[in-house]
Amino acid sequence: MIALIVPCYNEEKRLHIENFIQHHDLGIDFFFVDDGSKDKTAEIIEQASQKHAFIHLVRMDKNRGKAEAVRHGMLEVYKKLSWDDRSWIGFWDADLATPLSEIPKMLQYSNLYENVDSIWCSRVYRLGADVKRSPLRHYLGRGFATLVGELLHVKSYDTQCGAKLFRPSIVPVAFKETFIGKWVFDVEILLRLKNHNVVEYPVTIWRDVPGSKVKISREIFRVFWEILKIRKKYIS
Rank of each mutant, 00 (worst) to 15 (best):
1 M>R: 10
4 L>W: 05
4 L>H: 05
6 V>P: 06
6 V>H: 03
7 P>S: 03
8 C>M: 03
8 C>L: 08
10 N>K: 08
14 R>A: 14
17 I>F: 04
18 E>R: 10
20 F>Q: 01
24 H>C: 08
30 F>K: 05
33 V>K: 09
34 D>Y: 07
35 D>K: 06
41 T>Q: 01
42 A>K: 10
46 E>Q: 13
47 Q>D: 11
48 A>Q: 08
49 S>N: 04
50 Q>W: 12
53 A>T: 12
53 A>Y: 09
57 L>A: 04
57 L>V: 05
58 V>D: 11
62 K>F: 14
62 K>N: 12
63 N>L: 10
70 V>F: 06
75 L>V: 04
83 W>F: 04
86 R>H: 15
86 R>P: 07
87 S>R: 03
87 S>G: 05
90 G>L: 07
90 G>T: 06
97 A>C: 12
99 P>T: 02
100 L>F: 00
101 S>T: 08
102 E>L: 00
110 S>C: 05
112 L>M: 12
114 E>W: 14
116 V>N: 00
117 D>W: 01
118 S>I: 02
118 S>W: 02
121 C>P: 06
123 R>L: 09
123 R>M: 11
123 R>S: 09
123 R>D: 03
127 L>Y: 15
127 L>R: 14
128 G>H: 01
131 V>M: 06
132 K>H: 15
133 R>K: 14
134 S>D: 08
134 S>F: 00
137 R>K: 13
139 Y>G: 02
140 L>S: 07
140 L>Y: 11
142 R>I: 13
147 L>Q: 13
147 L>G: 08
148 V>R: 10
150 E>V: 15
155 K>D: 12
159 T>E: 09
159 T>F: 13
161 C>Q: 07
161 C>M: 13
164 K>Q: 15
169 S>I: 14
170 I>S: 06
170 I>P: 06
170 I>K: 04
171 V>F: 06
171 V>A: 06
171 V>S: 09
172 P>K: 02
178 T>F: 11
179 F>D: 00
179 F>R: 02
182 K>E: 11
183 W>N: 09
183 W>R: 11
183 W>F: 13
190 L>I: 10
191 L>K: 00
192 R>E: 05
193 L>W: 01
194 K>Q: 06
194 K>P: 00
196 H>E: 05
203 V>T: 01
203 V>A: 06
205 I>H: 14
205 I>M: 15
206 W>E: 14
210 P>N: 10
212 S>K: 05
213 K>C: 10
217 S>W: 13
219 E>V: 11
219 E>R: 14
222 R>P: 08
222 R>I: 12
227 I>W: 05
235 I>A: 00
236 S>V: 14
